Simulated assay, not measured.
Amino acid sequence: MPSSGPEDHVIKSEMTKAGPEYGLVKLTPTVVDILKEYGPGALAGTFPDKSPPRSIKFGIGDVVSVTIFEAAAGGLFIPAEAGVRPGNFVQIPNQNVDTAGNITVPYAGAVKAAGRTPSEIQQDIVKAIGNRAIEPQVVVALITQNTSLISVLGEVNTPARLQANAAGERVLDVISRAGGPKGQGWETWVTLERNGKRATVPFGALVYQPDNNVWVHPGDTIYVYREPQIFLAFGAAGQQGQFPFDMWKITMAQAMAKAGGLLDAQAEPAGVFVYRREPRELAERLGVDCSKYVGPLVPVVYNVDFRDPAGFFLATKFDMRDKDVLFAANAATYDTAKFLQFVRLIVATANDTIVSANNVQVLRINSKGL
């Protein structure tokens, strides 16, 4: 008989003709709790360091200024006739940190600057000229920041390489400095890359799950892009097709409502399924035998029983993922009704043929009588 998909008992038997094989997982409170540990909200897990970034350090190419103070005139930098000077200090011309990572200070020579903080450089300079200057004090400042930068790319209003803020900033702060996202928040995704590690979350996860709004470090790259999330609905639902989330996340209950709910005369309430590929680690925690699967992703089919009143509570806690397939199986009685309707069509067709033949016979008899 024609059908919109496999029958409920076929899916639950985990039988497949062409593959791939899949694992069936019945939705329970335990399963819902395990699933909440996974998913797109991964910035907090990939970058668990909750402390602000360390002090900004100089790098090759940064422009640095050095100011040297002495306690009295007649020292190394302040001449004895310093009465006309504006102060007891000397300003060394701004200079770039060279390719060797050094800056040059008169009477101190080359001073290591790359990878160091201003206070560390100041101490080295004071130590180098301390025997020749009068109680010297040094101030080292960053004039132009060329290395401690944060790149913000993609669907933001002002993509740029931004100077790292010494006070520290989080992901949302940096995106705000880049003009904010261009598109709607629910269709916007944010990728953070640092030292070869990468994680992606929906923009809403940064707003509604503060743990994902992690500290940004110098050298990080933030990529913002738009990708509307969708799910596909098939089977005995009110409507079939592709549906957008139109929000940063939705539950199975909301997805079922978007698809028009279950057809009262057709659907099997205990046969509502969500098809998805899950990481092997998660599938194993859900009780799926992963020995027969190859690769990092395992096909999993989740089943919820809407004949059980508690099934609706579980459906409101089960988050849909992008490209999930929602399938509602037909009830067995509906398939029986289709078969009976088919038999009735055949009987009616045969009966029509007999009636037509009888009518032709009657017409012949009548014509002979005439």
Rank of each mutant, 00 (worst) to 15 (best):
A255C: 11
D305P: 05
K317N: 15
A310D: 14
G271Y: 10
E278D: 11
L297D: 11
M247R: 15
D289K: 12
L314K: 02
V304W: 06
D305L: 02
F327C: 01
V288G: 02
A257L: 11
V272Y: 01
F318I: 06
G261Q: 12
P296T: 13
A259Y: 05
D305G: 02
G295A: 07
V301P: 05
E284N: 07
M256G: 12
A332S: 10
A267S: 13
R277S: 15
L297K: 06
K292S: 12
R307H: 13
L286G: 04
V294R: 14
P279Q: 05
Y293K: 06
D289G: 01
A270R: 12
K258T: 05
F318M: 12
P299R: 13
R307C: 04
N330M: 11
G271S: 10
T333L: 00
E268L: 03
L286N: 02
T336G: 06
K292Q: 14
Y293T: 08
P279V: 00
D289E: 04
P309L: 05
F313Y: 15
E284P: 00
F243C: 06
G238E: 05
Q239M: 10
G271C: 12
V325H: 09
D264F: 06
R285A: 00
T336A: 10
F243Q: 09
E281D: 14
G238A: 01
C290E: 06
T333H: 00
G241C: 03
V274W: 11
N330Q: 14
G260E: 11
T316S: 13
Y293M: 04
V300D: 08
F327M: 06
D289A: 08
E284A: 08
A253K: 13
D305H: 07
E281H: 03
A329G: 09
Q266S: 05
L286I: 04
Y302F: 15
P296M: 10
F273T: 11
G241Y: 04
A236N: 04
